[in-house]
Amino acid sequence: MTGSTSDAILTVEALNAYYGRAHILSDVALQAGRGEVVALIGRNGAGKSTTFKSIMGLVDDRRGRITFAGNDISRSAPHEIARLGLGYVPEDRRIFTDLTVMENLEVGRQRPREGAPEWTPERLFTLFPNLAEMRGRLGGGMSGGEQQMLTIARTLMGNPLAILLDEPSEGLAPRIVEMMAHAIIGLKAEGQTIILSEQNLHFAGLVSDRAHVIEKGRIRFGGTMRELAADEAVRRAYLTL
């Protein structure tokens, strides 16, 4: 396999995850280097979200080696992992609907971190201009696209070294998807490491350097976006076109 980086910030090896008796992930391996945007691509139900949740410590029954920024996090609690600088943006957004936009950001706030871009609400509002006008609005009163931006901004408030971004384009109108792609490219320009999951190959292609393809809980492909684009067999077998 090609594309692995020596300067890896996140390394996942032999990750297995279970929901009750169901074996969901089998020997998943992933890597992301500093400043990279890596895509985890797969169909609905392939195991993308479970991979991210396992990395974040949100799946109880997980086994494997997960190293983040030099720390073994395979047995750490979610808040410890977040404190080390790994941000998580869940696919269902999980905005605090009873809290205002500013309060949502406050929950995500952590101290500045060496080696990571430093975010303030004001800087985030330049990244997501829509949010600037609704600082006092309750999370519950926002549209899906606005919530998606808020959930990313909330995670960035933790000044993460890397973020796990679960299906950022899911369920959004085409215009918003485009804004989202711009925002991610903007983040990359800031040097933000991003691991994102996608069903949408096109969207992933817009923003990512490398891709892993997952199907039925196994990694089927790893390489650059360009290699994936060239490999029709993989796309046909594991991705919805």
Binding site: L58, P78, H79, A82, Y88, P90, D98, R154
Partner: peptide, 11 residues
């Protein structure tokens, strides 16, 4: 409102 999400944000 959401304990798990709060934890995932480092609380």
């Amino acid at each position: 409102q959401d304990r798990e999400m709060t934890a995932a944000l480092g609380i």
